[in-house]
């Protein structure tokens, strides 16, 4: 169970997150949509303390902190309970696919090398890259790199995996394989908080879609309701624009 209460983040004079309240149940798949620059990515980064929130309360499993008073230990604890998938993959360039996945287990969880590598191999199997264990990121395609990025997040066994526009940097040919892996995780009821512009994914996979604008949650609900009968004019406006750009979803 994850709970965010009144989360605020400012960059200088700009308030990027203006009091976000969000509860995520175990096994729930939430997709966050909204126009660019409305704080969707910042929300994920605050949950992982890649950005330090200016106010708010965060509950991650047994961790319960006022973000303004979070100690170094709290921040490490929060990071261990959340795993992050980056838009640009952010794989460790000096490590193989296997080592990228095993790194956190060895360094953070202090697993013996052999045990961590065995787990990493299992994960490589699940993400369909068993044959790429010893390949370095530079020799992998964008889609393969992002699957390793997801594998690295899976290894962390976090309460929730945070996906920050995981397909936005990919060439169109690689998008499908990454979405397929995310769907596979969703089917296994991995708790996920996904920021994406893939409306088809939101419609098919999400338990709940959250629409954000101007640093606030404007509206949220099951995808069937939110896509077919948006209540707020801002949601309607946004959906009209993106669905016009993604006609395949409109007709489905």
């Amino acid at each position: 169970m994850i709970q965010v209460a009144n989360l605020v983040k400012r960059f200088g004079d700009a308030t990027v997150l203006d009091g976000i309240d969000l509860a995520i149940d175990q096994g729930e798949i939430i997709v966050v949509i909204g126009p660019s620059g409305t704080g969707k990515s910042t929300l994920l980064r605050c949950l992982n303390f890649l950005e330090r929130p200016d106010a708010g309360h965060l509950t991650l499993g047994d961790l319960d902190v006022d973000v303004t008073r979070a100690t170094r230990a709290d921040i490490l604890a929060a990071r261990r309970r959340t795993a992050f998938v980056f838009q640009n993959y952010a794989l460790f360039a000096n490590k193989t696919a296997l080592e990228n996945i095993a790194e956190g287990l060895i360094v953070v969880n202090r697993w013996p090398r052999a045990k961590a590598h065995a787990r990493a191999r299992e994960i490589l199997q699940r993400i369909g890259l068993a044959d790429k264990a010893d390949a370095y990121p530079a020799s992998l395609s964008g889609g393969q790199q992002q699957r390793v990025g997801i594998g690295r997040a899976m290894a962390a066994q976090a309460e929730v995996i945070l996906f920050d526009e995981p397909t936005s940097s990919l060439d169109p040919e690689w998008v499908e394989e990454v979405l397929a892996l995310m769907k596979q995780l969703a089917a296994e009821r991995q708790t996920m908080l996904v920021v994406t512009h893939e409306m088809g994914f939101a419609r098919d996979v999400a338990d709940r879609v959250v629409f954000m604008e101007g640093g606030r949650i404007v509206e949220q609900g099951p995808p069937s309701r939110l896509f077919n009968a948006p209540r707020d004019p801002r949601t309607r406006d946004f959906l009209r624009k993106v669905l016009a750009a993604q006609p395949a979803i409109q007709s489905s």
Partner: peptide, 29 residues
Amino acid sequence: DRSQTEAALSIGMTNGQLMRRIVLPQATR
């Protein structure tokens, strides 16, 4: 690459671990 620093922090590495295992090996090259 700054994003690798973020990735290392995101999985719970400390600054020292980040330097030793990710940044310095690549900076050496």
